[in-house]
């Protein structure tokens, strides 16, 4: 994979939010949503990002499309720094599009389907001619599997799966290079979810799209991704190829996460690895490994230092002192 072109590089990205204190005179605290995330996204691949709610996966997606400004760190897109300001920024926005989780609230209820899909082209002036634009809208609706006769319908006249298709058509209307999909199928029923997942696969083949696919559903992520990043409390704790993460999970958190998936058949008996307690609060100073308070293998060092992502085998990176070569010696 090393010989592939890097489309997006995330370097030491951190994002923290200010949390107002409830007491007068007490200074506001920092909520560390992302801390020191390093990731690379190759052209044409699907990078799956998985984690529990509150682990910062949506914040990461939003940082990539520029909906959040990172506190520190850098994003490089096609080798140059990613900045959304100025005329150049507008061009970049065109190349990176996002699909949101909730197909019900991410479409303007007062606009027809045609207008929704057309709008990005109007804003970015990619297709100036109105007739051409309408032609393109119909073409896009065909691509995502919507009936072109429904251009004049409003979002409420569509089902959840169809709305998600409108969302996808809107994102595709600017022919982007990178699509950030923030839980695009979690609001859909299983049978509809399968249809939309197939559509994602088809579009990737057809247009050579690159996806950053965020989800909390491990089987969906495994199905669609080439590589998977596991996040916990704002950090990437493990990164590896899609097969490897299920066959040989290294990080204790990944192991616990995998053991929590419901079985694939009634005959399967799983060994339960339970993490005790809840996710610690991301507010305030973060010391040590984020999993230290819940990890069964926790050592003193885990409470003091934060492990870095280090390469174990080819392409399999893990942030855990258990796999620290120095300690093994």
């Amino acid at each position: 994979m090393a010989n592939q072109e890097i489309l997006l590089q995330i370097k030491d990205l951190s994002k923290s939010f200010k949390v107002g204190s409830r007491k007068l005179g007490v200074p506001a605290q920092q909520l560390h949503a992302l801390s020191h995330v390093d990731l690379e996204v190759y052209r044409g691949e699907t990078l799956g990002i998985i984690g529990e709610s509150g682990c910062g996966k949506s914040t990461l997606g939003r940082c990539i499309v520029g909906l959040h400004t990172p506190t520190s760190g850098e994003l490089m897109f096609e080798g140059s720094p990613l900045s959304f300001s100025g005329p150049q920024g507008k061009g970049l926005r065109r190349k990176i599009q996002m699909i949101f989780q909730d197909p019900y609230s991410s479409l303007d209820p007062r606009k027809t389907c045609g207008k929704i899909v057309e709008e990005p082209m109007v804003i970015h002036k990619t297709v100036e001619d109105r007739a051409q634009r309408e032609e393109r809208v119909r073409e896009l609706m065909g691509v995502v599997g919507l009936d072109a006769q429904h251009v004049h319908r409003f979002p409420h006249e569509f089902s959840g799966g169809q709305r998600q298709r409108i969302n996808i058509a809107r994102a595709l209307s600017l022919s982007p290079d990178l699509l950030v999909c923030d839980e695009p199928v979690s609001a859909l029923d299983v049978s509809i979810q399968a249809q939309v997942l197939n559509l994602f696969g088809k579009l990737q083949k057809e247009f050579g799209l690159t996806y950053v696919f965020i989800s909390h559903d491990l089987s969906v992520i495994r199905h669609i991704s080439d590589r998977i990043a596991i996040m916990y409390l704002g950090q990437v704790v493990e990164l590896c190829g899609a097969e490897g993460i299920y066959d040989s999970p290294l990080h204790p958190y990944t192991q616990a996460l995998l053991s929590a998936i419901p079985p694939a058949s009634p005959f399967e008996k799983k060994k339960a690895i339970e993490l005790s307690g809840d996710i610690p609060s991301p507010i305030g100073d973060q010391v040590g490994c984020p999993l230290a308070s819940r990890c069964p293998h926790c050592t003193d060092r885990c409470r003091r230092e934060c492990p870095q992502l280090t390469e174990q085998t080819d392409g399999h990176q893990v942030a855990c002192f258990l796999y620290d070569k120095e300690r093994a010696r």
């Binding site: 495994r222 199905h223 669609i224």
Partner: peptide, 24 residues
């Protein structure tokens, strides 16, 4: 059958098209 087939499972082949139930 449709319901069972349309679930992506951890043991199935990756990146292959899932069987779906057509229509609504």
């Amino acid at each position: 059958w449709g319901l069972l087939d349309s679930m992506p499972s951890l043991s199935s082949q990756r990146k292959t098209a899932l069987k779906t139930i057509a229509g609504t």
